[in-house]
Design a protein around this nucleic acid. Sequence first.
DNA 1: CTCCAGGTCTGGT
DNA 2: ACCAGACATGGA
Length: 207
Amino acid sequence: MVSLSGLRILRQPFGETLLGFLCSATKQIVQIKQMIALLAGRHGAPLNNGAGADETSWGLETAKGSAVPTFHRLPTWAELARVPETELRACLLGFRARYISQTAQYLAAHPGWLDETETLPYLEAKERLCSLPGVGEKVADCVLLFGAGRLEAFPVDVWILKTLVRRYGLDGWSTPQLAQFGRVHFGPLAGLAQQFLFAWERQEARK
DNA sequence: CTCCAGGTCTGGT
DNA sequence: ACCAGACATGGA
């Protein structure tokens, strides 16, 4: 028996969360971190003059020979809109580069769209997010859960799928059906329950 | 060298 | 509506 004590749901910036999960499709978590680090290092504005401690790997593009790394924040969507898709592809994004590029173009053409989406009720916000290229039900739920504090969102990824099939006997259910089940079964804090299921299943898988 | 990875989109029944 | 394949690419 494990406790999973200390498990938390972060409230991350909406736009950054969207970017992060646009990178996530069929990629391992370690690789997603790498993609995000490359995007920040190559296309994000520097955060300091190299005066910080060198305890993270966010500033990958450290000047050669320099003793102190420079940290970069993630690029904004406005900045991403000016980056050629080929340069995005060079950040290990693969086919996701097109999704990010097209999303950036759309957001650039619709000022305020993202901020408005963040304030909408769950279902409306989700519907709008799903209209973006590369954003399906799962990514939309992750963006709303981690980037907008919508704890009723219940993202169904491959791990949750396994869990619901193996431990809840929901074999044969479609992904949308499983998402609906999660929201109904776990209620207003379904997203929190999802995090425990996810963490549990991944912990069990490690051996 | 195959297989798979915090999915989504597209074109077939 | 439901079901495969494709999609890029680095780890396992």
